[in-house]
């Protein structure tokens, strides 16, 4: 069994499960809708101000919402000892990790695609910088959240009260990625600075932590 065939089989299974139940996606969507509404009530900014703060708000909303998908990632595999079956199977451990990370990436990307128009409507946004740069920022930023999130979700499986553990482990490590995402988004929205440095930083973050996750996941999965 090659790495990619196992990856795509697992990914297809996860997407099908999510398509039928829509548990993670629905709860994420409703949660981030609530975040948008609460932020609108609490800040009520002018269009000019909102350009400066909305980068932070968007990413905070997505960060919190993605916790729901990440927490569900492995919980599903604990039922009926699926994860133990994975451990004894000859399938490469990294295939499982990649499938889970790609699955989460797809779910969070769908969430972002659906929620971004709402942010635009509620905050009367108009991008002053090069808008196409938002796409690499979104892709790299989402992967930065999701790759470490999937890894730490696997880590927190072994702890008491694992749903609380995940953000406690993930947020400190994600700080540079969040700084880069927010700063890049603000730079593009206001058009005052160039976002290049932050895009490169996000890319570095992604490369470093994807490598680290792939190198250490087998140890985490088989840790006994």
């Amino acid at each position: 069994m090659s790495l990619w065939s196992v990856t795509f089989a697992t990914l297809r299974k996860d997407i099908r499960l999510e398509w039928r139940s829509k548990d993670a996606l629905n709860s994420m969507l409703f949660f981030s809708l609530l975040v948008v509404v609460i932020f609108v009530f609490s800040f009520d900014p002018l269009a000019e101000e909102s350009r400066h703060i909305v980068g932070g708000l968007v990413w905070i909303g997505f960060l919190f919402a993605s916790m729901m998908a990440l927490n569900q990632t492995w919980a599903r595999e604990l039922r009926n000892q699926v994860l133990d079956a994975y451990r004894v199977s000859p399938a490469p451990a990294n295939a499982l990790f990649l499938a889970k990370a790609l699955g989460n990436f797809i779910f969070v990307s769908v969430l972002e695609a659906l929620m971004t128009p709402l942010f635009v409507i509620f905050y009367n946004l108009r991008v002053l910088g090069p808008a196409w740069q938002l796409i690499p920022v979104a892709v790299l930023g989402t992967w930065a959240l999701v790759v470490n999130g999937t890894f730490f979700a696997a880590m927190s499986l072994r702890t008491r009260s694992r749903e609380i553990m995940l953000p406690l482990l993930l947020f400190p490590i994600s700080i540079p990625a969040v700084i880069a995402m927010v700063a890049a988004t603000t730079a593009i929205l206001t058009g005052e600075d160039s976002a290049h440095f932050y895009i490169v930083l996000l890319l570095t973050y992604d490369v470093v932590f994807t490598t680290a996750c792939l190198a250490l996941f087998e140890t985490i999965l088989h840790a006994e």
Binding site: R158, M165, L216
Partner: peptide, 25 residues
Amino acid sequence: VLRRFSNSAQTQMLAAALAVFGALD
């Protein structure tokens, strides 16, 4: 916190992995 909350035999391995992530960060 991870060390405090994790009560299994794998705590040491998980904590070591987290320390490496922290150093990379």
